[in-house]
Simulated scan of single mutants.
Amino acid sequence: MKIDIDQDKCVGAGQCVLVAPEVFDQRDEDGVAVLLTEDPPAQERGGVEEAARICPAAAIRVDGR
């Protein structure tokens, strides 16, 4: 799975971190989401897809590969 965060669109709501804390974090200085891993394990797929679905800025894209 390939994950892309459009950091220019991110509003720092932190919903991605709440549902997939092993994959997403936020920068301390502005709250913008960052990836902890570009190739998360398969068991994280559900959380990553939910994070993309609930992102209020639609800043997360997931490619199934």
Score class of each variant (00 low, 15 high):
11 V>S: 05
5 I>Y: 02
43 Q>K: 11
51 A>P: 07
19 V>E: 07
64 G>N: 15
31 G>Y: 15
46 G>C: 00
20 A>R: 05
7 Q>E: 14
40 P>M: 00
56 P>F: 08
15 Q>S: 09
11 V>Y: 01
58 A>Q: 12
40 P>Q: 06
11 V>E: 14
37 T>W: 00
65 R>K: 15
26 Q>C: 03
11 V>G: 08
57 A>H: 08
44 E>G: 00
50 E>Y: 02
10 C>P: 02
56 P>H: 04
4 D>C: 01
2 K>P: 00
60 I>A: 07
18 L>P: 05
20 A>I: 09
2 K>D: 12
46 G>L: 01
52 A>G: 02
2 K>Y: 02
41 P>L: 04
53 R>W: 04
4 D>K: 13
63 D>H: 11
20 A>M: 02
42 A>R: 15
47 G>P: 06
3 I>E: 00
43 Q>Y: 10
8 D>V: 15
35 L>S: 07
16 C>G: 10
62 V>H: 06
55 C>V: 05
64 G>I: 01
33 A>W: 08
34 V>Y: 00
61 R>E: 15
20 A>S: 15
45 R>K: 14
50 E>V: 06
60 I>P: 06
48 V>W: 07
23 V>K: 09
65 R>C: 02
9 K>V: 06
4 D>E: 13
57 A>D: 00
32 V>S: 03
35 L>T: 12
19 V>H: 12
